[in-house]
């Protein structure tokens, strides 16, 4: 079947719509959710921008091997001056490594199907809530540039997996302190929680579900992919929750490391 073989039947446009010409007749507090989204996402963007551009010290607590997720993998001059084991990759980089690192998680979240819903509703108001009038008179959705770029979400997903591995390695390394031996502190647990939530967010992604098995037409002939699909489908149902939890926890992890590294609080040792 070719696209041109399909009969495109005629649709009659126009005709008066029923109901009063008002933006919405909803009487509930439909604005609460988009407002909350604007507040939380804006707070994260402001904090991440500060952390990436200006927070170029106190992102590493050497005594307990705690590295902020915004600065992992660490590379360039700033890491060398903060005594972080830095990657030889891009060792000439003079600016904050977070400027490069954050591109990938940011791209993953910006093209994420859940976040698309969240920011199209709350920031772009297209529409701000169901059955509330779209704020724009013209609408082309994701058919044209720049929004057509949303279709590369799966490639940011792959990059996201690389970062998950790196942050998992950081969490494991946080058990091994420079003085020797295996130890655990609140900071170690924070890094573990952060890595776990990022894994859950990535594995619950719609693109992941598609590539695990959603793309096959015939589950019975692909039993392993069907099993993978069945594993990620319940996670996918919680994608929104994982998206918010991982976003908040990644910022709080950075805050925690900075507070400990600056000596504001003490990272309590568990063993």
């Amino acid at each position: 079947m070719a696209v041109d073989d399909v009969t495109i039947t005629e649709v009659k446009l126009g005709g008066r719509r029923g109901g009063p010409d008002v933006p919405t007749l909803r009487t509930d507090k439909w604005w609460k959710l988009p407002l909350t989204t604007v507040v939380v996402l804006s707070a994260f963007v402001v904090y991440a921008t500060w952390a990436a551009f200006l927070g170029t010290s106190n992102f590493f607590y050497e005594a307990h091997n705690l590295l902020s997720p915004f600065y992992s993998p660490c590379f360039g001059h700033i890491c060398q001056t903060n005594n972080v084991t830095s990657s030889p990759f891009l060792d000439w980089w003079k600016f904050s490594p977070a400027l490069i690192i954050l591109v990938f998680p940011l791209g993953f979240r910006m093209t994420c199907y859940y976040y698309r819903k969240a920011y199209y509703r709350s920031f772009w108001r297209s529409p701000v809530a169901c059955a509330v009038q779209d704020a724009h008179t013209k609408y082309t959705g994701e058919t044209k540039a720049p929004l057509i770029i949303q279709n590369i979400h799966r490639y940011f997903f792959y990059f996201g997996l690389v970062f998950n591995v790196l942050l998992t390695v950081d969490a494991v390394q946080a058990f091994i302190w420079p003085g020797g031996g295996v130890h655990m502190s609140i900071g170690t647990l924070v890094l573990c929680l952060n890595a776990s939530l990022l894994w859950l967010y990535s594995l619950s992604c719609h693109a992941c579900r598609h590539m695990c098995g959603g793309q096959v037409r015939n589950f019975s002939q692909h039993p392993i992919r069907h099993k993978l699909w069945k594993f990620v489908t319940p996670l996918n149902a919680k994608h929104m929750q994982f998206a918010w939890m991982s976003l908040v926890v990644v910022a709080l992890t950075d805050v925690y490391v900075r507070l400990v590294a600056s000596g504001t609080i003490t990272d309590l040792k568990i063993f």
Partner: peptide, 28 residues
């Protein structure tokens, strides 16, 4: 598309002519 016995490929059709890209997934 998910039917194991169907032989049509509708992917280009839904993208080109049925406006799949217009949906911005607001889930209403």
């Amino acid at each position: 598309e998910m039917h194991p016995l169907d032989t049509n490929d509708r992917r280009e059709l839904v993208r080109e002519k049925m406006g799949l890209g217009l949906c911005n997934i607001t889930k209403c």
